[in-house]
Nucleic acid binder design. Structure first.
Length: 803
RNA sequence: GCGAGUAUGGCGGAAUUGGCAGACGCGCUAGACUUAGGAUCUAGUGUCCCAGACGUGCAGGUUCAACUCCUGUUACUCGCACCA
């Protein structure tokens, strides 16, 4: 074992023994809650990508503690999920076992990197003490009418007899066996997340998420504002369509309805070409989502014969088609088709030889549609639109909407892409859904006092023949008594999705030992919120949305203190392999943090990962560059030989020292970790130029470097006789001392640098001008020319404009 | 297709508000010390027709001054993908 590793171990033990990073609920200090996404403890161990995000947050935690905050920086495990289950199927080991092993490894690795987590708050989503509350919260959703059962199509692999996630069914082919995926109807638990669309959108205003994170949320919610119009059917009945382009209503030449929607089912008795229509519906249902997108470059569909729609304004008879590009679960499941002004309709009309009517002037529409992104805001006017002819599209939008509203056949509506949350998984390794199906009472929730509903111990983890969760095979578990009437009943065998446990774990960290509640209101009020949350870019859309939905629901039923419990959310870029590719076993470019620590030490790994590049961007691994960071730390170690007695900072460094403190604080709060490292390198290099430095100078450097390299700095600091940095305070800079009294600035002639001058902070404009004019090289360039003007930007630059 | 992001030396990247482009590190070159060097130290390192000129994907524009602002354009990456 080399010295560095010994030193690192020593301080890790010290922190453990002294519980240096324990967060106490309450007290005088200001609370500050720093969160990193808790990992899924996979068999592969900690990834260098984890280290990047964790180190950044750890550095902030360490700095904030020294600045006098009561910092909560917790860690736990998001341990339900498919990989553990797969492993269990293969090896016939309870996933719990594998998870326990993996957690052990992860924890050991994290400790070896010196993250300042408060380990007393650790938990796993798979702990019954935890998932009891996940189940309890599900019951609240249910009791407030927010959870319901619905039959929806799922990806089904007929060979594996298994339900597949969209990821596993990518390309319409089963990931495992390669056979074709079909759609199968299945009854599933759903959460009414779509009801929160508007709130989730508005709530973003009460957060400080990074712009790109906010945008991810906005796009996912996918709000669009439009009009819903009723359309009558010849011979009685009606349906509604949703459009964002009501101005094109006179251009309707047909309607298209979704083959998977309810509408066609209702119309079926009146359909003349039933066989054709039913065949098309069947064909659509066979296609997985993926096929549907790929195969539909040509627009398929059939006309529904025997049923005609009446145009809502012109009263003309218009044909109705079935087309799988219309989705049953978005809008009303029916659209008006205006081929002249919607490319998709244009293509459909071309394939099916349908009429087109141009209703907006401005471009030829024989080759392609003249769409809204091209006509909006250009002053284009309506044609072929009866009394609305001559209005601009913007005027027409309003006028036509009003007209239809007054007739009582249209409403202004918002639609959202975001659907309800499918909350069932036909898997073993998840939180059991605490519901019982009673032949008499229907679905009945378990009594809250009977939670947690534990996962049973089983030997086989394969799904059943018809794709039910393996739980369905365990009769002693499935068969139970109805909590309401006591008759024989069956448990729900589906489990919750992986997203469930991670939707509220940050609340549990505030009060992890609470036996009576998922988290006490006092504890939550004390910590207020997550001040700073970091995680991977891949989770900024869905995980964050689920978590916000969960919190908003809890807020609405009075169980959390605010509607948004996460203030700042940022995300770090990926650590790529040295070949600039995503790290993967198959590419052989994976870097194992253990190996790096073994060879270079944890501090080097930490400093390097912070230095490697822009924190928010992907960055390739470079062992050479890592070596450079080790050299930097070695230099800091060697500086100790220059240390002499002295409890004051040296005058010669003072300005740089204060500037460095200021810059580090600024950069840390703006994710500029790479420049934090570089400014520490600058200070180190400056120290190194001198024969001696004082203990106080050295201690300052060590303190500033401590958040990034906590082990070696503590050791060196101890060697010069100071008490531990982690128990000390962060230095305070003096703004005045960060300003140089003498400064070198550039003198330009016509924007080109021709020389530099020394200026004093108190020099006035005239004095600076004079100095600039004395510059030899400047004189050469203005000789014989007329000075048009001289621009002096104080403390920055002089520019002499000549002609 | 839509939305977003990115583009700066041989490489990773700096440049907070428009104000000396290339901080800091890697790599490379030469030298010193050395039995040795993947250690350390010193000097150098954007390009070129080298008293100068040119340089931040490309083409324009605004300005005394543009990596930074505006218009257009190209390439790559990510997200969503028939959302009416």
């Amino acid at each position: 074992m080399n010295d560095i590793l010994k030193i690192e171990k020593k301080w890790q033990n010290y922190w453990d023994k002294n519980k240096s990073f324990k967060a106490i609920n309450g007290g005088e200090k200001k609370p500050y809650y720093i969160l990193v996404e808790f990992p899924y403890p996979s068999g592969a161990g900690l990834h260098v990508g984890h280290v990047r995000g964790y180190t950044a947050q750890d550095a902030i935690a360490r700095m904030k503690r020294m600045q006098g905050y009561n910092v909560l920086f917790p860690m736990g495990w998001d341990a339900f999920g498919a990989p553990a289950e797969q492993y269990a199927i293969k090896n016939h080991i309870h996933p719990k076992k594998a998870v326990e092993e993996n957690i052990k490894t992860f924890k050991k690795q994290m400790k070896s990197i010196g993250f300042s987590f408060d380990w007393d708050r650790e938990f796993s989503t798979t702990d019954p003490d935890y998932y009891k509350w996940t189940q309890w919260q599900f019951l609240q959703f249910y009791k407030h009418g927010m959870a319901y059962k619905d039959t929806i199509p799922v990806n089904w692999c007929p060979n594996c007899k298994s339900v597949l996630s969209n990821e596993d069914a990518a390309g319409g082919v089963c990931e495992r066996c390669g056979c074709e995926v079909v759609q199968k109807e299945k009854s599933q638990w759903m959460l009414r997340m779509s009801e929160y669309s508007e709130d989730l959108l508005n709530g973003l205003e009460d957060t400080n998420f990074a712009d790109r994170v906010k945008l991810g949320q906005i796009n996912w919610i996918g709000k669009s504002t439009g009009v819903e119009v009723d359309v009558d059917i010849v011979g009685g009945g009606s349906f509604s369509i949703f459009t964002t382009c009501i101005e094109t209503i006179y251009g309707i030449t047909f309607f298209v309805i979704a083959p998977d929607g309810k509408l066609i089912k209702d119309l079926m008795p009146r359909v003349e070409n039933k066989e054709e229509v039913e065949a098309y519906i069947l064909e659509t249902s066979k296609k997985s989502n993926m096929d549907r997108t790929e195969l539909n470059k040509g627009k398929t569909g059939v006309e529904i014969k025997g049923i005609k729609a009446i145009h809502p304004i012109t009263k003309k008879e218009v044909p109705i088609f079935l087309g799988d590009f219309v989705l049953g679960d978005y809008g009303t499941g029916a659209v008006m088709a205006v081929p002249s002004h919607d490319q998709r309709d244009f293509e459909y009309a071309t394939v099916h030889h349908l009429e087109m009517i141009q209703v907006i002037e401005g471009r030829d529409v024989s080759q392609s549609a003249f769409e809204k992104q091209d006509y909006l805001g250009k002053g284009c006017k309506l044609i072929n639109s009866g009394e609305f002819d001559g209005l601009t599209v913007e005027e027409a939008k309003e006028a036509i909407t009003k007209f239809l509203e007054e007739k009582g056949i249209a409403r202004r509506v918002n639609n959202y892409k975001m659907r309800d949350w499918i909350f069932s998984r036909q898997r073993f390794w998840g939180e059991p859904i605490p519901m019982v199906n009673c032949p008499k009472c229907g679905w009945v929730p378990l009594k809250e006092e009977d939670l947690p509903l534990l996962l049973p111990d089983v030997v086989e983890y394969e799904p059943t023949e018809d794709g039910e969760s393996p739980l369905a095979n365990i009769s002693e578990w499935v068969n139970c008594k109805c909590p309401q009437c006591g008759m024989a009943a069956r448990r729900e065998t589906d489990t919750m999705p992986n997203w469930a446990g991670s939707s509220w774990y940050f609340l549990r960290f505030m009060d992890p030992k609470n036996k009576k509640e998922f988290a006490g209101m006092d504890a939550m009020k004390y910590w207020r919120r997550v001040d700073w949350y970091n995680g991977g870019m891949e989770h900024t859309a869905r995980h964050l949305l689920y978590a916000r939905f969960w919190v908003q629901f809890l807020f609405n039923i009075g169980l959390v203190p605010s509607k948004e419990m996460i203030w700042t959310r940022v995300s770090h870029g990926m650590v790529l392999g040295s070949d600039n590719q995503k790290m993967s076993k198959s590419k052989g470019n994976v870097i194992n943090p253990d190996d790096i620590i073994q060879e270079f030490g944890a501090d080097t790994l930490r400093v390097y990962e912070m230095f490697m590049g822009d924190y928010q961007m992907d960055a390739p691994w470079s062992t050479d560059s890592l070596r450079g960071c080790r050299r930097f730390l070695d230099k800091v170690i060697r500086l100790k030989d220059k240390v002499v007695e002295g409890n004051q900072l040296s005058d010669s460094f003072l300005s740089l020292q204060h500037k460095t403190i200021k810059k580090i604080e600024y950069d840390m709060s703006h994710m500029g970790y790479n420049t934090v490292v570089s400014s520490l390198m600058v200070l180190t290099n400056r120290y190194d130029e001198e024969e001696t430095i004082t203990k106080e100078d050295y201690h300052l450097l060590l303190t500033l470097l401590n958040p990034l390299a906590p082990h070696i700095t503590e050791e060196l600091n101890e060697e010069i006789g100071y008490s531990p940095i982690c128990e000390g305070t962060w230095p305070v800079y003096d703004e005045e001392k960060t300003v140089d009294s003498i400064k070198e600035i550039a003198v330009q002639v016509n924007g080109k640098v021709r020389g530099t001058i020394q200026i004093h902070i108190e020099d006035d404009e005239q004095a600076i001008k004079e100095k600039a004019m004395e510059c030899e090289n400047v004189l050469k360039h203005i000789e014989g020319k007329t000075i048009v003007k001289v621009i002096v930007i104080k403390g920055k630059i002089v520019n002499i404009v000549v002609r």
